[in-house]
Nucleic acid binder design. Structure first.
Lengths: 276, 276
DNA sequence: GCACGGTGTTCTGCATTGCAGAACAAACAG
DNA sequence: CTGTTTGTTCTGCAATGCAGAACACCGTGC
């Protein structure tokens, strides 16, 4: 999407014998999706992206964008401010994501367990899936008592500095870990693990005790305990976590919560057909 | 989207002089979006849509769908089951909706609805957000006919004696109500509710009928009807109201306005992604 | 075993369809 | 009013997507 390879735009290679696979790339469709991505990434709460700005940043003629844009607006994926004419995302995207979340059976299966965990722990519970190289939050159960955190559903987070990420990564093959390390481990807080060997040691401990811990590695005031959810083929593509402010989740509490989160995740795994 | 007019697909009108506007319709892009919509609408939790089924229901050749689909998959809007090859929505749609919800300016979303409400009711409409322990006026649409009231945008008001405040409070957890009561309910007018239990009873009625009423509780000559606006996570942090002088807004008129304000607020809620 | 109806995928000539520059219109700013 | 930005329409050119047919690939059931 952001990193679509060579057929960037404007590269007209006068290929004498263009293969079919190289011809049929739906360039217009790809460009339309590039427009969509551009609007998604650069559109502040205040204003959207104007036609000219889009044309400039995507290096396309305005007429092209106008043409590509019309169907997107009709479909509700884009909307146009009727005063300024600026583009923003449209309500249609909500329909998409709602439908998407509806198709996730993991969410349904885990719902009961998440709710119980949230109630018993009195903290916020998150459910994430693994979309390399990130984890994506697909469900959240909040305890009503605490200060509300921003809704995370749909947002992404790095693998190496979150409990859920590490819980998943710990059960991936070594290559996956190597890739994550190779991609770099930029520090988010001063507690973030930025060394590959230390990360591997942490993943080993995670496997041994059955749950992962994020001790202020992603947010300065948040501790987080997560356990892997095993698929029907015993691979790990999801995780369940309990997180909260450090004032509430102490080191001692982590040792109490860990096994309970692992238990909950295990029950979900069983529902999915895991043999664990 | 589902009801796009003539250029359905396959209608080749042998127009001798096709206008530019009729030529540039990005038919391929439109068809790609039709594919997306089809997957969105017909993809149960269990399985996705197979290529052949898509081709059949959309009346397109399989090769076309395959070609259109490739970029959508690359963009993450569609995903393909690696075993069955069936199409389902991809995680990319979450990124879209996440971005969409981030850019939402409540004012913009509510603007259209507020204007209509103001026009139909012929009274002043207010939009407020909840900033405990107050409500803050963030937009106002006046009817030109009446005497103008002092501009309220940005000003704060107590929760317990305004319709907007009560509309919001009625959908908060009991702790929030307790806090408000604990902070005290000083009388503003002689109609102000100053008793915690009476306030709770009023909030209960508000929940039951779907809108809140301020009967001269904040200003001696003003009646006000308000309804809650639900967020994308179905919490309430804003409200919409119609207010006017008691001479114009009678008790009977309140019963007429109530459901209409509730309707308007509901429409705004839907735009914000509420499932209500 | 081999035909079968069912998948998904590749290929290729044809012309429809999208391309982009230029020309136009409209809204501001100086 | 002239200049500079914006958004929009137009149109010749050919690149690009179109769709049918041909291919490869399962499984199932005579």
């Amino acid at each position: 999407m952001t990193g679509r390879p060579p057929p960037l735009y404007g590269d007209h290679v006068p290929d004498p014998a263009p293969r079919a696979a190289e011809r049929n790339q739906s360039s217009s469709l790809r460009r339309a999706l590039a427009v969509l991505a551009e609007v998604r990434d650069h559109a502040g709460p205040g204003q959207g992206l104007t036609l000219s700005r889009l044309a400039e940043s995507l290096a396309m003629p305005k007429s092209t964008i106008l043409r590509l844009t019309a169907p997107l607006v009709d479909a509700g994926l884009l909307a146009r401010d009727r005063r300024t004419g600026a583009y923003r995302l449209g309500v249609g995207v909500l329909r998409l994501s709602q439908a998407y979340l509806g198709t996730l059976d993991l969410r349904t299966v885990a719902a009961e367990e998440s709710a119980r965990l949230a109630r018993e722990a009195g903290e916020t519970v998150h459910l994430v899936i693994y979309e390399p190289p990130h984890v994506v939050y697909i469900d959240k159960v909040e305890n009503q008592a605490t200060v509300r955190m921003a809704s995370r559903i749909g947002s992404r987070a790095p693998v190496y500095c979150t409990a859920v990420g590490k819980a998943i990564l710990a059960w991936q093959p070594e290559e996956a870990v190597a890739e994550v390390v190779a991609a770099g481990l930029p520090p988010i807080t001063k507690f973030t693990i930025t060394d590959g060997d230390r990360l591997r040691a942490d993943l080993l401990r995670t496997r041994q005790r059955g749950y992962a811990v994020d001790d202020r590695e992603n947010e300065p005031e948040v501790r987080c305990v997560a356990a892997p959810i095993f698929n029907h083929d015993d691979t790990v593509t999801a995780a369940l976590s309990v997180s909260g402010l450090t004032s509430r989740i102490t080191a001692a509490r982590v040792r109490d919560l860990g096994p309970r989160v692992a238990q909950s995740a295990l029950r979900v795994s069983r529902h999915l057909g895991s043999s664990r």
